[in-house]
Design a protein around this nucleic acid. Sequence first.
DNA 1: CAGTATCCTTTCCGATACTG
DNA 2: CAGTATCGGAAAGGATACTG
Lengths: 127, 127
Amino acid sequence: MTKETKDIQKKYQVGVEATLEVIGGKWKPLIIYNLMTGRKRTSELRRLIPNITQKMLTNQLRGLENDGIITRKIYKQVPPKVEYELTAYGWGLKGALDSLCYWGEDHLDKVHGDKSKVLEECNASQN
Amino acid sequence: MTKETKDIQKKYQVGVEATLEVIGGKWKPLIIYNLMTGRKRTSELRRLIPNITQKMLTNQLRGLENDGIITRKIYKQVPPKVEYELTAYGWGLKGALDSLCYWGEDHLDKVHGDKSKVLEECNASQN
DNA sequence: CAGTATCCTTTCCGATACTG
DNA sequence: CAGTATCGGAAAGGATACTG
């Protein structure tokens, strides 16, 4: 193996891993997906993602914010109001996420049958 | 939220998750990447991925095999010889993995600077 | 050479209670 | 309403020793 091959191999690995750190985890894809339909309050996200705990929601939102995927806007009022919104940078993930969705749906169909409507559903987040 | 939206949301989530189950984990992307350059013996993979333990290598290979991504060919001889190879189905992951690599490299560059050669390296696995 | 078994650490994540 | 703190279980992964 040449040094160049080793470098490329490493780049490939760290590239993939870097993305998986941003969109991986149990809830991040779903949070991003829901923000693709527009800015949302914390309570809206909780309603849209019923099974997530408050702790995990905050965790994942902070992670996405630190990676520049979303913004967090705080309205100084009582009771508090916070809104999350995808950044332009975050929208750049759409292609990768759609790839994952499409392949995954296709894969599940291969295992379980029923191949209808795969494409439409994976692209349903489009504007 | 309409029932349709809920369904699409769920599809999106399970699709992404299904793919992440196949290519997720610490070593699977790198194993797939290395198999993109051709069939490999177990010992070759160990050499190509120096930090992986035998346990994890076997683990991940079994997972990929169960998902139909790779085949395992056993030569009945002493000492044993086993070769792993990407299936046509496994090659279907290339697009998704490249998306992840590309975005990840781009993201790392955004954080660390040095934007050179991103495209080439992510596409280096091409034939 | 290829794979298995065991033990251990680390990380992820859920449940619950609490605060401004 | 939004967020924090703490506890505990489950799962992923690493180190090591062993087998055919």
